[in-house]
């Protein structure tokens, strides 16, 4: 693997009439939306609504049945978007390589593409781990870390490449409220420092309203609404109102 020749600037995303079925069941039913360069776009919806599948399509891990996904104007399938632009994805589970240390995980992109000398990589890794509040954990194994720490390592791994587009899959799932706020802060810091285009899939209302420029509400494989946090709060759609105001009352 050699250092890819890359282009600068933020990356736009355009999804056009995306359809996908698994075992005859249609999961995505003609999804279309645009994300502007540098925008923080949150896709919100209940569990099983097709959010994660949509995200996998956007980074090219899944092939659509029909429709297309354009990243910086180029199809993410059959083109070399990944080698031309710096895209990163933070998985729901963190998806850290268990056979590597935390430091090796964070520096993996730089090491495998041979972009820097080992000493320089170690310096960058230490810097990125410090940025996510995990200073000095380079030699730990991922299995020694809590779920929240693993997600922060995954964010550090994304930060290392100075991404132009970052995708987050349920970044606050399985985390306590304090850690969820911490992860939200990390995403904001990334946005303010690097200004990448950010796509977040979540069902966490606080996170969505805390970081989004625009929110898309997805339900049963279709987009129901796209708007700013205020527009979505004021939507008259009963499904959206139920979703954003759902509360358990102790009677």
């Amino acid at each position: 693997m050699s250092a890819p020749e890359q282009r600068n600037g933020n990356v736009s995303v355009a999804v056009r009439d995306l359809r996908k079925s698994f075992n005859g069941e249609e999961v995505l039913k003609g999804i279309s939306f645009d994300v502007k360069p540098g925008e923080t776009f949150v896709i919100m919806g209940p569990s099983g609504s097709g959010k994660s599948v949509l995200l996998k399509h956007i980074i090219g891990l899944e092939e659509p049945d029909s429709g297309e996904i354009l990243s910086a104007g180029q199809s993410v399938h059959g083109s070399e978007v990944l080698s031309k632009y710096r895209l990163a994805m933070v998985f729901q589970s963190g998806a850290l390589l268990k056979s590597l240390t935390v430091g090796e995980n964070v520096g993996l992109y730089l090491t495998e593409h041979r972009l820097m000398e080992p000493g320089e990589i170690a310096r960058v890794v230490a810097e990125k781990l410090e940025a996510v509040g995990l200073k000095g954990l380079e030699d730990r194994s991922p299995s020694e870390l809590s779920g929240g720490m693993q997600k922060r390592v995954a964010i550090a791994r994304a930060l290392v490449i100075d991404p132009q587009l970052v995708l987050f899959d349920e970044p606050t799932s399985e985390l306590d409220p304090l850690m969820s706020v911490n992860i939200g802060e990390q995403i904001k810091q990334m946005r303010d420092r690097l200004h990448p285009t950010i796509l977040v899939v979540t069902h966490d209302r606080d996170l969505a309203f805390g970081i989004a420029d625009r929110i898309a509400m997805i339900s049963e494989g279709k987009i129901r609404f796209i708007g700013t946090p205020n527009e979505i709060k004021n939507s008259r759609d009963p499904m959206i109102q139920t979703f954003i105001h759902a509360e358990l009352t102790n009677t």
Partner: peptide
Amino acid sequence: AEIGSMRVYQELDALRTMNISPINY
């Protein structure tokens, strides 16, 4: 077992998103 576990726990997907070929790696 090792590669299968990497596939199940999305480590292979993580490699692909970093433009690292699982064949080479």
